[in-house]
């Protein structure tokens, strides 16, 4: 369970997140949706305690991130595809992170197998394709077998087989009772995986809803999404 209350974040003069409150419940995949620049990544960094909100707070199962006793065993996150030293092997990267939370080496081998990168585990991660890097990031997120998962645009760079794999993975994780928050700027992608939806635009909450409720609002899910986000995109083109 993630509870965000009244989050505000400025970067210099830009207001990135504006009084944002939402809940992410366990047992279901929640899509975190909004146009580019809506504040999704900023919100996720605030959940993780990486960026400090100017106002408001986030609780994860009742605690702020900084008070978690074993952070990787409680929250797993994929925030960016290449958050690793390019010269370190995938196995060494995972083993280092595992050590910080007293996670055994066997679990490192398990997550390498789950994400299908065990054959590349001893290659330097800087040589990985974007899809492989995403898998390594997901392996890191799964290391602590956490109850809460945050994934920022996880399908980026994955091939169709990889996309199908991650959809199933996320559904399975949610079915085990975990809290799963997945961001995307594509409603069509998120509709394949998520049931619950948090839609934001220009840092504000536009809707906390479900895929079923949203698609009932208009002729199609995409149409409903465009109606909701109309006027909050940062830029628009015209024909």
């Amino acid at each position: 369970m993630i509870e965000a209350r009244g989050l505000v974040k400025h970067y210099r003069s830009t207001l990135a997140v504006d009084n944002l409150s939402f809940d992410v419940r366990p047992g279901t995949v929640t899509g975190f949706l909004g146009p580019n620049g809506a504040g999704k990544s900023t919100s996720m960094r605030m959940i993780m305690g990486l960026d400090r909100p100017d106002a408001g707070q986030v609780r994860i199962d009742g605690k702020s991130y900084g008070h978690l006793r074993w952070p990787l065993r409680e929250v797993g996150a994929l925030l960016e595809a290449k958050a690793f030293h390019p010269g370190r092997t995938a196995r060494a990267h995972l083993a280092a992170l595992a050590a910080s939370n007293a996670i055994g080496r066997r679990r490192v081998e398990e997550v390498l197998a789950i994400t299908g990168i065990e054959k590349a585990a001893d290659r330097r991660a800087g040589k990985f394709s974007l899809g492989m890097s995403q898998r390594l990031g997901i392996a890191a997120a799964l290391l602590g077998d956490p109850r809460v998962l945050l994934l920022d645009e996880p399908v980026n760079g994955l091939d169709p087989e990889g996309i199908r794999w991650i959809r199933n993975l996320l559904k399975n994780l949610a079915a085990q009772g975990r809290t799963v928050l997945v961001s995307s700027h594509l409603i069509s992608e998120i509709a394949h995986t998520a049931d619950a939806l948090i839609v934001i635009g220009q840092g504000r909450l536009l809707a906390q809803t479900t895929v079923a409720q949203l698609s009932a609002r208009a002729s199609s899910l995409e149409e409903a999404f465009f109606q909701l986000t109309e006027g909050v995109t940062d830029y628009s083109g015209s024909l």
Partner: peptide
């Protein structure tokens, strides 16, 4: 500095927020 240039620092602080 290589942690900041690669983004690893965020994985590090996620693992150990203090």
């Amino acid at each position: 500095t290589t942690e900041f240039s690669s983004g690893m620092i965020r994985a590090t602080f996620a693992a150990a927020p203090r």
